[in-house]
Amino acid sequence: MNTIPARLDHLVLATPDLLATVADFTRRTGVAPAPGGVHVELGTRNFLVALGGSAYLEIIGPDPEQPAPEGPRPFSVDALSVPRTVTWAISPPDLDAAVATARTRGYDPGDIHPMSRRTPDGTLLEWRLTDGDTQHPSGLVPFLIDWGTARHPSASGLPSTPLLALSATAPDPGEIRRLLAALDTELPVTEGPVGLSFTVDTPQGQVTFG
């Protein structure tokens, strides 16, 4: 069974200490993630690694060079005590249509919001994604993203660790599978505590992150 979901855009590895997690990823894989950019006014920044095709890994954490944001940082990084793969994203051909279709199937992935970040060379990247209280709280059901005319992060010459597998555990795997079907994607889900893990191919062999 292919364990790489259709339309995978990126995985999100969130951490309370960004530089420490980047250093750990480098040590374990032999591949140093590239600086992605700063999420202005959100208090976070990221590092990126290509996963093959048009997919990539986002390692995101607090940006000590920014003032504390007015609201919580993205992906609840302030609540984390250790790094964790918190969620993933898919990129449907038509974001608005995908949201409308999912709602008719009984799952509301949330409203569509504009987002942006400033890359290290000063370029402003802008995109749209789903975000809201209606998204499944486990993070196992992906959010949806549309890069529009922006250059996709995977097309910027990132260092690479090809993705070999992505899987999840959940107390009710059937519930997660139904919601994934509403988004026209799938993910191997087995019974257990909520968790998301991925395995990459690296110069130092296969490495799994949870």
Results as ranks from 00 to 15, higher is better:
Met1Gly: 14
Met1Thr: 07
Thr3Pro: 01
Ala6Pro: 04
Asp9Met: 08
Asp9Lys: 09
Asp9Phe: 05
Val12Trp: 00
Leu13Phe: 15
Thr15Phe: 14
Thr15Asn: 08
Thr15Tyr: 09
Pro16Leu: 09
Leu19Gln: 12
Ala20Gln: 08
Val22Met: 02
Ala23Leu: 14
Thr26Ala: 15
Arg28Ser: 11
Gly30Ile: 11
Val31Tyr: 00
Ala32Trp: 02
Pro33His: 07
Pro35Gln: 11
Gly37Asn: 05
Val38His: 11
His39Leu: 11
Thr44Tyr: 07
Thr44Pro: 05
Asn46Ser: 07
Leu48Trp: 03
Gly52Leu: 05
Ser54Met: 02
Ala55Phe: 04
Tyr56Gln: 01
Tyr56Gly: 02
Ile59Asp: 02
Gly61Cys: 08
Asp63Gly: 08
Pro64Asp: 08
Gln66Asp: 07
Gln66Glu: 14
Pro67Leu: 10
Pro67Ile: 00
Pro67Asn: 04
Pro69Ala: 02
Pro69Leu: 05
Glu70His: 12
Gly71Lys: 11
Pro74Thr: 06
Phe75Asn: 02
Asp78Lys: 03
Ala79Ile: 01
Leu80His: 04
Val82Thr: 01
Pro83Cys: 13
Pro83Gln: 14
Thr87Cys: 11
Ala89Lys: 00
Ser91Cys: 13
Pro93Tyr: 10
Pro93Ile: 10
Pro93Glu: 11
Pro93Cys: 10
Leu95Cys: 03
Val99Trp: 06
Val99Cys: 08
Arg103Glu: 03
Arg103Val: 12
Arg103Ile: 12
Thr104Pro: 05
Thr104Leu: 15
Thr104Met: 12
Arg105Val: 00
Arg105Trp: 06
Arg105Met: 09
Gly106Asn: 05
Gly110Val: 13
Gly110Pro: 03
Gly110Thr: 10
His113Arg: 15
Pro114Ile: 15
Met115Phe: 15
Ser116Asp: 05
Arg117Trp: 10
Arg118His: 05
Asp121Ser: 15
Leu125Trp: 01
Leu125Thr: 09
Trp127Ala: 09
Asp133Thr: 14
Gln135Lys: 12
His136Met: 13
His136Tyr: 15
Ser138Tyr: 10
Ser138Asn: 13
Val141His: 02
Leu144Ile: 08
Gly148Gln: 01
Thr149Phe: 05
Arg151Met: 08
Arg151Lys: 12
His152Ser: 04
His152Asn: 03
Ala155Gly: 10
Pro162Cys: 10
Leu166Ile: 04
Ser167Met: 06
Ala168Val: 00
Thr169Met: 05
Glu175Gly: 04
Glu175Ser: 12
Ile176Gly: 03
Ile176Ser: 02
Arg178Trp: 04
Leu179Tyr: 04
Ala182Leu: 10
Leu187Glu: 00
Pro188Glu: 12
Pro188Met: 11
Gly192Gln: 08
Pro193Cys: 10
Val194Asn: 15
Gly195Gln: 13
Ser197Val: 14
Ser197Lys: 15
Asp201Asn: 11
Pro203His: 14
Gln206Arg: 15
Gln206Tyr: 11
